[in-house]
Simulated scan of single mutants.
Amino acid sequence: MKSRKETMQGVAVVTGAATGIGAAITERLADKGMHLVLVARDGARLEAAAKRLHAEYGARVSTLALDLSQQSAPARLAKWLTGSGTEVDVLVNNAGASLMGPVANSDPARLRGLVDLNAGAMAELTALLLPAMVARGRGAVVNIASTGAYAPVLAPVRTHPLRMWPLMRPRKRSCSPSPRRCGPRRRRPGCGSWRSAPAPPTLR
């Protein structure tokens, strides 16, 4: 059993806890002495993770196999926690997924499930568990997100047969009385008319 440098009290619920970032987070929390509730779709992996955390850190670990992309899942998790008498001190919203490919070729049901998991479940589960933390005067909510949300998406422009910029480029027109209505346009020197800004270089 590994020694603990710092001890914390309470229970942490970690979603997407079976593998990857979620599994790493559970190890850090177990090392600090927290009891854990692991939530993920794969029950077998959850049980294996629970045994390992108990053996290495002596943590008390509960598991719940649950697909949080289902709309009723957050409420089921909250009900399960209440029924087991579990007071949650830390909620880690780590469960998430991604889909690759054009939207036109995607399964609408899978897209809806993606949004329900990445955004809906996180928001609903937080709203379900946060009030008790506020009432007790202690607790924490940690939301894990991908840096992909902040990355520019250029591949569809490069590979799509249609050139998107010419379709979006504004037509030349005279300026309205209010310059702020003209959008991203530049005033021609010595003239009251306006022209469109130059198109960006073609992506290759």
Rank of each mutant, 00 (worst) to 15 (best):
C175E: 12
G22R: 11
A140G: 09
D31L: 12
D42M: 00
R136N: 07
A49N: 00
S196W: 07
T159F: 15
V11S: 04
V88L: 06
A73G: 10
V13G: 04
G22W: 14
A44T: 13
G101N: 09
P131V: 08
G113V: 02
H35L: 00
P161Q: 10
V88P: 03
R45H: 04
A149F: 13
P198K: 12
V157L: 15
C191R: 15
R45G: 14
W194M: 13
R169P: 01
S178M: 04
A119D: 11
L77T: 11
T15D: 02
A78T: 04
M133Y: 01
A30I: 08
E47W: 03
S69R: 15
P200E: 03
C175K: 10
G33H: 11
G113T: 04
R185G: 02
G43H: 06
E47A: 10
V115P: 01
S178T: 04
V13S: 05
L36Q: 07
A12N: 09
L81R: 13
P177F: 05
P198N: 07
A50K: 10
Q9C: 02
D31F: 00
L128A: 12
S174L: 10
A78F: 00
K51Q: 13
G120E: 09
R181T: 03
D42P: 04
P184V: 00
P184G: 00
V39M: 03
R136W: 02
R181Q: 11
V115Q: 07
R136G: 02
Q71A: 14
G22M: 11
S193F: 08
A73C: 09
L99F: 08
R187K: 13
S84G: 15
I144T: 12
P177T: 04
R76G: 05
V157E: 12
S84Y: 02
C175S: 07
V61M: 04
G85Y: 12
V37T: 05
P184A: 09
A199C: 06
M8V: 00
L81I: 08
A40S: 15
N143S: 10
D116H: 11
A121D: 06
V115A: 13
A40Y: 10
T86K: 13
A197H: 06
L29R: 09
A75R: 15
T82A: 15
A59F: 03
S62V: 00
V11H: 07
L38H: 05
A121W: 02
N143M: 03
G183W: 01
E87F: 01
V92S: 06
P170K: 08
V142S: 05
P166N: 09
H35R: 12
Q9K: 14
A59C: 06
R52H: 09
R186Q: 12
V115C: 08
V90C: 07
E6F: 14
A30V: 07
L167Q: 15
P102G: 01
G58D: 05
L154W: 14
P166D: 10
G120N: 12
T147L: 11
A75Q: 14
T15Q: 05
A199Q: 14
V115I: 14
D42H: 11
P201D: 03
G16P: 08
R204N: 10
A59Y: 06
K32N: 09
S72A: 15
S106C: 08
R195P: 01
A73Q: 12
A65F: 05
A49I: 04
A18N: 07
R76I: 05
L162A: 14
C175Y: 01
G183P: 01
R173P: 03
V14C: 07
